[in-house]
Design a protein around this nucleic acid. Structure first.
Ligand SMILES: [Mn+2]
Ligand SMILES: [Mn+2]
Ligand SMILES: [Mn+2]
Ligand SMILES: [Mn+2]
Lengths: 219, 219
DNA sequence: TAAAAATGTTAGATTAGTCTAAATATTATG
DNA sequence: CATAATATTTAGACTAATCTAACATTTTTA
C-alpha cells in the first residue's frame, strides 16, 4: 500500500497544479517535474489503475480523494520540515527547500505529528505557505501582494509568492523578513516601483515585480 | 558523485561485516540485506568499478578508504538520527531504528553536523553503539557484557548487543535502561542465570543470554 | 473549415535493482 | 585425494522509471 518517492512527487505536483485548475494536463506535470511528457503518460496510467487520479486519454486528469490526501500529506511534511530546519536547526529560509525535498518522503505519521506539536501546530512555513493539519485541512490564509496595498498604509509581511533562492536572498539583503512592518511611501507612476520603509527604518526602493512577489496580511 | 540508497546500504552492511573480519563474503552481505547472493555479485562488480571496494571473483572483498568513509558516514547519520528521535522527539529506544533507516540517507552535511552539535557531540546512540565524529573516527568504547562481571561488583549499563525491538521492550519491562547501576547478587551455577538488582531496587532474574546481551562500562 | 501548430500517446530502448535456475569454483570430508 | 557440500558467479528474465522518435488527437488560426 505504500507509494514510491516518484509517485509521491507526481501527486504533490498534481495537487499544486489542481489548486489553479481542477483539470490538470500532461505537459504541465512534465514541466514541473522536468521530465518528458511521454514519461508522464506512462505514470498517469499507473496512478489511474491505483485509483489515485481520474484519467482519460487526451482529456486531462484530476485527483481522487485518495490521491489528494497523499499529495497534501507530502506538502504538509515538506512545510513542517522546512519550518523545523529554520526554527530548530537555524537554517536560513533560502537553504531549506532542497533538504525538505528529501525529508518529505520519510514515512512515519508519528514523527510528523510530533514535529507538528513541537513547532506549536504552525499555520505557515518559513516562506508563508500554509501548512495543512493532520486531516489535510488548510487554514484560511488572507494574504495579498504588497503591490495591491495603497500608499501610507502599514502592512505586515506574511510570505512570498516567488520562492527562488535568489529572491529570498535579495529580500535578506534589503532587510525584509516575515513579520516586518512595511510602509509604502510612494509608488512611481511610470514603472510602479515602490519607495517603502521596513519597520520604520530608512527608505528602500523595490521594483513592481518585487512588490508583486511579497505577500502581506490582507485587510 | 552521489550514491544511491541501495549502494549506501551495501556499504553500511559491508562496513559492519568488516568490523569482524577485514575480508567480507558475498553470502554474508546477502544475509544481512536479505537479498539473493546473485544480486550481491552484480552489485559488487559495480562497487568495484567505482573503487568503493576491492573485489576478486570467488575471493571476497574489502572496502577501499573511499568505501569505508561512505559506510561510516551512513552509520554516523543513522545513530545521530536515532539519538535525536529519542532525546528531542521523545521516542522510545525500540521505536527509532526503522525511522533512522530512512533518515540515514538524507543528504546534507550541514544538517548532520548541526544535529551532532545540537545533541552535544554525543559518543553513543540510544542503544550504546558508538557514533563516529565528522572525520569518521570512533571514540574508544570500553564496554563488556554483563555476563563477564563478577558477583557483588556494581556496574553501569552502557548499551546492548542484541538490538531487536523485543529485547529492548523486555529490558523496558524489567526496568533496565542505559545509565542504570546493576548489582549482581548471584549467578546460578546450573544455567548461569543471574539474580541482580537495578539501582538498589528489588531483585530480578535474568537468563544467561540476557546477561550476554547487556553491555556495561568496562573496568 | 482546412491546414498548421500544439499537445498527448505509443513503440521501442535503456538503466538500476532484483529474481530463479544453471554452471562453476572453492572448501570440507571420507 | 576424489568426491560431496557449500559458496559464488553467470545467464536470462522482470519491474519501475526514464528517454527518443514516430504517430495520433485536439486546438488554433488563416
Ligand atoms: Mn519548499
Ligand atoms: Mn520530493
Ligand atoms: Mn539502528
Ligand atoms: Mn538504510
Amino acid at each position: 500500500m505504500k507509494n514510491s518517492f516518484t509517485e509521491e512527487n507526481y501527486l504533490k505536483a498534481i495537487y499544486k497544479l489542481s489548486e489553479r485548475d481542477e483539470l490538470v494536463t500532461t505537459t504541465d506535470i512534465a514541466t514541473i517535474l522536468d521530465i518528458r511528457a511521454a514519461t508522464v503518460t506512462d505514470m498517469l496510467k499507473k496512478l489511474a489503475v491505483k485509483k489515485l487520479i481520474r484519467y482519460e486519454r487526451y482529456k486531462g486528469l484530476s485527483l481522487t480523494e485518495k490521491g489528494r490526501a497523499i499529495g497534501v500529506k507530502i506538502i504538509r511534511k515538506h512545510r513542517l520540515w522546512e519550518l523545523f530546519l529554520v526554527q530548530k536547526m537555524k537554517f536560513r529560509w533560502d537553504e531549506v527547500h532542497e533538504i525538505a525535498e528529501q525529508l518529505e518522503h520519510i514515512q512515519s505519521d508519528e514523527l510528523i505529528n510530533r514535529l507538528d506539536e513541537m513547532l506549536g501546530f504552525p499555520k505557515a512555513d518559513p516562506h508563508g505557505d500554509p501548512i495543512p493539519d493532520k486531516n489535510g485541512v488548510f487554514g484560511k490564509t488572507r494574504t495579498i501582494p504588497l503591490s495591491q496595498v495603497k500608499p501610507k498604509v502599514v502592512s505586515v509581511v506574511a510570505g512570498v509568492i516567488e520562492n527562488s533562492n535568489t529572491f529570498l536572498q535579495y529580500l535578506d539583503k534589503i532587510g525584509i523578513a516575515i513579520g516586518d512592518k512595511i510602509t509604502i511611501h510612494a509608488i512611481e507612476a511610470y514603472d510602479q516601483s515602490h519607495r517603502i520603509s521596513v519597520n520604520q527604518g530608512k527608505e528602500v526602493f523595490i521594483s513592481e515585480s518585487v512588490a508583486k512577489n511579497i505577500l502581506v496580511v490582507g485587510k
